[in-house]
Write a protein that binds this DNA or RNA. Sequence first.
DNA 1: TGTACATCAGTGAACGCGCGTTCACTGATGTAC
DNA 2: TGTACATCAGTGAACGCGCGTTCACTGATGTAC
Lengths: 204, 204
Amino acid sequence: MRYASTHKERTHQRIIEVAGRLFKERGIDATGVALVMSEAKLTNGAFYAHFASKEALVEEVIADQLRSQLELFQDAPDDLSGLEVIAREYLSPEHRDSCGSGCPSAALLDELIRRSEPTRQAYSDGLVRIIDTLQEHLPRRSPEEAKSLVLALVGLLVGTLQVARAVTDRGLSNSVLESGLAAALTLMKSPWPDASESLAQATS
Amino acid sequence: MRYASTHKERTHQRIIEVAGRLFKERGIDATGVALVMSEAKLTNGAFYAHFASKEALVEEVIADQLRSQLELFQDAPDDLSGLEVIAREYLSPEHRDSCGSGCPSAALLDELIRRSEPTRQAYSDGLVRIIDTLQEHLPRRSPEEAKSLVLALVGLLVGTLQVARAVTDRGLSNSVLESGLAAALTLMKSPWPDASESLAQATS
DNA sequence: TGTACATCAGTGAACGCGCGTTCACTGATGTAC
DNA sequence: TGTACATCAGTGAACGCGCGTTCACTGATGTAC
């Protein structure tokens, strides 16, 4: 072998990680293959020795990003306090201010909705795994309750972070994060209603 | 006048509305000026008689979209039941399945974060107006509580809709919508905690 | 041990294409006299 | 009333540019004999 047997594999992984950061910082469409390769200290041409197309890269990046996010969540304690730690870190100003190293869902969600079937499937599979993992933090609830709560929390965290990033007023942005966190903590300790119940019925 | 005095103005507005739909369906970067103009039954060249650049169109589209969204919310009753109606319609399968005619935040949020300063400002201004309007649905709460709750609800609705759109499994997608709605209703009737309070403290 | 050849990750110039943008022009209709 | 000109929303071909992709090549190192 002219290179170490792991050489190409490591280059491949480096491209995926660099692309992940650039996609999250700049958007997928706005990040060219040439830029990804130059940031990975390579030239254009080498790209197609690693990936069949840009979309194939996108698909691998998404799978890789969701795997990383899953591992991050798995580091937290396996109970309700772990879920609180996750929410606090997720809705922190630091996470808001670092798209490139942050959650792929918050950075790419509505771009992903419009991409190829395999890419969307890669995202969806990764998200299902994350949901399953988060559910394990709620052993005191029934599986149905736990799953429903986790789904709502995922939506809340992702949406709140995005809104906090979009708003131009820094003070308002901080309020968005704090409000989202307060809501997350409220949900974690609330009894879980049936969604078919209306507010009027529930409060009367 | 060779045309009715309102002719150009109406064409201008038609371009903005067509572009709004296309941007939300396909993404901003992925929607070319030529496509927008042909869908508006015009040719390329007329574009620059109406807008200084594509980004100027984006800015006007965003302002227009948030104005429409605000009007939609203003149609609901001015109390807590109105907020429930809004949440139910927002998290409906119909809204999930119609990006083009739906909420601009859900369709474009993370693309907006990366656009020009004036475009982001247009979005931010529109969102602030929406938040102020939604707050009026909560006369029973203190202004601080009402604002915090509304901010969290906005994050929850936007994030939940995006996740429901991204997930490839239809059953899971429906569960996401139902869970998000259940969470929204729970938040509307819960007492509002201080975000600095931790879950451990609150539950012990 | 020395030489010819095979391997293959990476190089870098080139390709066609669609993008945002420009511009000379059209043609319908109003105004001047 | 008739004719020459002005107005201006819209036309459609063309521009340079950067994109994703292709391909003939390089050069370091392994293998054959």
